[in-house]
Lab assay of single mutants.
Amino acid sequence: MQNSHSGVNQLGGVFVNGRPLPDSTRQKIVELAHSGARPCDISRILQVSNGCVSKILGRYYETGSIRPRAIGGSKPRVATPEVVSKIAQYKRECPSIFAWEIRDRLLSEGVCTNDNIPSVSSINRVLRNLASEKQQMGADGMYDKLRMLNGQTGSWGTRPGWYPGTSVPGQPTQDGCQQQEGGGENTNSISSNGEDSDEAQMRLQLKRKLQRNRTSFTQEQIEALEKEFERTHYPDVFARERLAAKIDLPEARIQVWFSNRRAKWRREEKLRNQRRQASNTPSHIPISSSFSTSVYQPIPQPTTPVSSFTSGSMLGRTDTALTNTYSALPPMPSFTMANNLPMQPPVPSQTSSYSCMLPTSPSVNGRSYDTYTPPHMQTHMNSQPMGTSGTTSTGLISPGVSVPVQVPGSEPDMSQYWPRLQ
């Protein structure tokens, strides 16, 4: 039975679970980093996980050691009161100082060594604690504590007292930064006198190289990059290397530039699409467009005044059976039934097929058609009795279509119309 579990990581490298990497692998990681390889490249070359490479390099940059820390136990506290007071002093002298600059000053002034120097995250935590204590304490208590930490007896009751030896409130920041720059020169002199001055200088240079600022491109470089971006948004590694040799930039910087440029292009394309949609959409909808001609068919113009009344309900007709019959029939052209047409008796099958359309009241044959006459024609229609054979009435077949029909004066039988409509 094995005491430890061995495995293979996602890159194909072998590791022992819970145990640190061998010293030979750690040394190779540092050597590759000094030669300029990126952590992701080191991870692929040595088949070590990216997190492990970053952790080893980060500890090497901070402490200069590649040895693993002790497994188990607690780390001794490195942010001692003396170190905290120095950090507060540096922050007062130059409020814009960075944590890694404070760390360098602690090393250069001999406050800490490589073994007990606090990390950048520890210094940031100390600065946050100082800021929170400043908010919790009152103004007087804060000034007393700062005077105690600074070891001075001057008056701290006013704002300019934060910067000793100065009279203009805006000047101390520059003086403090100048003092810090002077301390940086002392850093070089002190570290050069040490035993491991060369190694420390190499480590600091490598650290500065990794902690780079934003790349500033010249106009020629920007023009070359934009020209390549117009050709393709995704250049391959050969195109990037050719462009890197042409404009004297690292291939990694060119790759990052193209990634950022593609993101910018997507944002601009989104804005262009929004403007295009806004320009195509009308600002207001016309009133006429809300009524579609496919839904509402136009009603033909009436030929006679009587045809303006298109349904039985508008003429005072309360018989719903006839109203439904007229509205359900398709529109037909106007025609006239003459008196000489043969009077065919209704076929029983045809009569039964339209039995649902006729009223059940037996008085329908005896009703006159003056009910369908509009009010303004009552006088004219009353002067001509319906009993004469020459009287013409208008029957409504569908809305908007008038059918003048000659009705025999002897017997106005409704059943004569249905064979004609089939």
Rank of each mutant, 00 (worst) to 15 (best):
Q2P: 12
Q2D: 10
S4V: 11
H5C: 13
S6P: 10
S6C: 14
S6W: 15
S6N: 09
G7H: 14
N9H: 02
Q10G: 05
Q10S: 11
G12W: 00
P20N: 00
L21N: 00
P22F: 00
D23Q: 13
T25A: 07
R26H: 00
R26V: 01
K28L: 08
I29K: 00
I29C: 04
I29P: 00
I29T: 03
V30T: 05
E31P: 00
E31Q: 13
E31V: 08
A33V: 07
A33K: 09
H34V: 09
G36T: 03
G36M: 04
A37K: 15
P39N: 15
P39K: 14
D41F: 05
I42P: 03
S43L: 02
S43D: 01
S43T: 04
R44E: 06
R44L: 04
R44Y: 05
I45T: 11
L46M: 06
L46P: 01
Q47R: 15
V48P: 04
S49F: 04
N50A: 15
V53I: 09
S54Q: 03
S54C: 08
I56H: 05
L57T: 05
Y60K: 09
E62K: 14
E62T: 12
T63E: 08
T63A: 05
G64E: 03
G64W: 01
S65G: 05
I66Y: 15
I66N: 03
I71C: 15
G72Q: 04
G72V: 04
S74C: 06
P76L: 05
P76W: 02
P76D: 02
P76M: 03
R77Q: 00
R77Y: 04
V78P: 02
A79S: 14
T80E: 00
T80V: 07
E82K: 13
E82M: 12
V83Y: 00
I87G: 01
I87C: 07
A88H: 07
Q89H: 10
Y90S: 08
K91H: 06
E93S: 08
C94T: 13
S96T: 14
I97Y: 15
A99H: 02
A99E: 01
I102S: 04
D104E: 14
L106S: 00
L106N: 00
E109I: 08
E109V: 09
G110Y: 09
G110S: 09
G110R: 13
V111T: 10
V111H: 11
V111N: 09
C112V: 13
C112T: 08
C112L: 06
T113C: 13
T113A: 13
T113I: 11
T113P: 12
N114M: 12
D115F: 11
D115K: 15
N116A: 11
I117N: 15
P118C: 04
S119D: 00
V120M: 09
S122F: 00
S122L: 03
N124A: 02
R125M: 02
R125I: 00
V126P: 05
V126K: 05
L130K: 14
L130I: 10
S132G: 10
S132N: 12
S132P: 09
E133G: 10
E133P: 10
E133Y: 10
K134A: 08
Q135T: 13
M137C: 14
G138D: 14
A139I: 15
A139N: 14
D140Q: 11
G141T: 12
M142S: 11
Y143E: 14
Y143P: 13
L146P: 11
L146Y: 14
L146R: 14
R147Q: 14
R147S: 13
M148N: 14
M148S: 09
L149M: 14
L149P: 15
L149G: 14
